Structures are given as C-alpha cells and as structure tokens.
Amino acid sequence: MASMVWTRYAAIGDSFTEGIGDLHPDGTPRGWADRAAEALSTRAEGFGYANLAVRGKLLDQILDVQLPAALALKPDLVSVSGGGNDLLRPGTDVDVLAARMDEGVARLRAAGADVVLFTGVDPAGSAVIRRTRGRVALFNELLRATAVRHGAHIVDQWSMDVLRDWRCWSIDRLHMSPEGHRRVALAMLESLGVQDAGDWREPELAPLPALSRGARLLFDARWARGYLAPWIGRRLRGRSSGDLVTAKRPGLSPVGK
C-alpha cells in the first residue's frame, strides 16, 4: 500500500524539535524534524517545511504561540512535541498538562492536519532525570489516549531501547546526539507509514564497556557542574535558554533553503 504524501509540514515544540545536539554544516540546528522533512520532500513536489520550535519552551508557550502560527500556514502535517520542560518541574500537574496537549491536537485535527506526537524517553539511566520517570510514564499514557481519540500518529520513544544508550545523547545528557536525532526521524517516518526510509533499529549498537563506580561518580559530578548547575541557575533566575531565540524556519519553504 502506498504511503500518503504531504506537502506542507510544520513542526512545533522545544529544543528537541529545534534540533539542539545535531548541527548542519553551518552550525545551525538540524535535528530529527529537518531530517524527516528532507525525506518527505523527496516524495512530494512543491514541499514546504516550517520549524517553529524554540528551545526551553513550556507546553503552554508552544500551544499558545507556536500552534496558532502553524495553523496560519495551513499545514497538512504537524508534529507536536512538548511537555518535557514542564515535567522537569516537580509541581507540574500531569493531568492538566495532558489535557492541554489534547486540546491542541484537537485544534490541529479540526483544521484538517495530520498530527504526530512523541512520548517521552524512558529516563531510567539518568542519575537525576530518572526522578521524573513516574510523571513521564503517566504523561505518555495520556498522550497515547490522545492519539487514539483524535486519530494522531505517535512515536513511542519510551519503547525505543536504543535511546537509552548514551551514544544517542549529547554530552549535556539533555539533548540528543546526531545519532539519536537520526533514529527519531526514521521512527517518525515509520509512524507515518513512509516506506523505504530506513530502519531506526539499525545499526544495532554494541554494548558500552561498564564504568567503575568511581569513574561513574566522576562522570556524573562533571556533568552536574558543567550542565545541571547552569540549568538550575537559569530556573532560579526565571530565565530560559530560548529567551533570545526565534524560530529557525518561521514560514514554509523548500527543504535546504
């Protein structure tokens, strides 16, 4: 069965969708959304792609600002990923967060766009972020219900065991590496039924050598000092890494331009 063809793709979200951790040759963020758009563009004439995602944004900001801007572009495909920054905050009400996402997906589907959602990755291997595991798992289940309710596609990153491998992550452990972004792009294309795009499961990664307890503690300490502490500092000052950042592709344009 032939896969569908889309010609107007808009991506909204935070740093994950912006592509932090995966760069174009000119140093600008690439990421899974750019990679997926590149593949989709080879299957449709006149293909246009917009990426409205901005690092550090909370779900309310994504849905209140980026979603209306995406709808104005009259897309036939929209990817929505958000809530991760919210879930890092202990006081977040997961049910309220999921309800907001559900409302956003309903708006997009009512406008005639196909929608792709993303569950969170299982954070079991992270010394700090694994404390959010229960909240992430609950949010994922509510996202799956939203996908069924509105006929949206969903990329189940939680079940992608390869994403637990640190080679799929940047040194900051918060953003994916080029390898992680590559695999997520292929998983998105698979969720859309795009054929012959490649398999996110390949190549299989050989197991990493085990670190001693001392080496692991040193690794964690360096990470906390270099990346966790600055992140906490921004939160205490009420600042975000995306405060001075604008969308890299605010309008639909051909891939590569």
Results as ranks from 00 to 15, higher is better:
164 R>G: 15
148 V>K: 15
148 V>S: 14
116 V>A: 05
144 R>S: 07
140 N>A: 02
138 L>H: 04
126 S>D: 09
123 P>Y: 02
148 V>F: 07
162 V>E: 13
141 E>C: 00
168 C>L: 03
168 C>W: 06
117 L>E: 08
126 S>F: 05
145 A>C: 02
146 T>W: 04
130 R>T: 05
150 H>F: 10
163 L>F: 10
162 V>D: 11
169 W>Q: 06
143 L>N: 01
146 T>P: 06
131 R>F: 03
163 L>W: 08
147 A>R: 14
154 I>L: 15
144 R>V: 04
124 A>G: 02
116 V>H: 07
120 G>Q: 07
156 D>G: 12
154 I>F: 06
130 R>P: 02
129 I>G: 00
156 D>E: 15
166 W>K: 15
170 S>I: 04
171 I>Y: 14
140 N>K: 07
136 V>E: 01
125 G>N: 13
169 W>D: 09
135 R>T: 00
151 G>A: 11
118 F>Q: 10
125 G>W: 10
171 I>G: 13
136 V>K: 04
140 N>G: 07
172 D>N: 13
147 A>H: 15
129 I>E: 00
166 W>F: 14
144 R>T: 03
125 G>A: 08
138 L>P: 01
166 W>C: 11
159 S>P: 03
168 C>V: 03
148 V>L: 12
145 A>I: 06
121 V>F: 04
140 N>L: 02
118 F>N: 07
116 V>N: 04
132 T>V: 05
152 A>P: 13
140 N>C: 05
145 A>V: 10
162 V>I: 13
172 D>G: 10
153 H>Y: 15
127 A>W: 12
128 V>S: 00
145 A>T: 14
155 V>K: 09
164 R>D: 14
142 L>T: 06
166 W>H: 15
160 M>Y: 12
120 G>L: 05
172 D>Y: 12
122 D>S: 02
130 R>C: 03
160 M>N: 13
116 V>T: 05
147 A>W: 15
145 A>F: 02
124 A>W: 14
143 L>A: 01
156 D>Q: 14
130 R>K: 10
130 R>H: 06
160 M>K: 13
168 C>R: 04
155 V>L: 12
172 D>R: 11
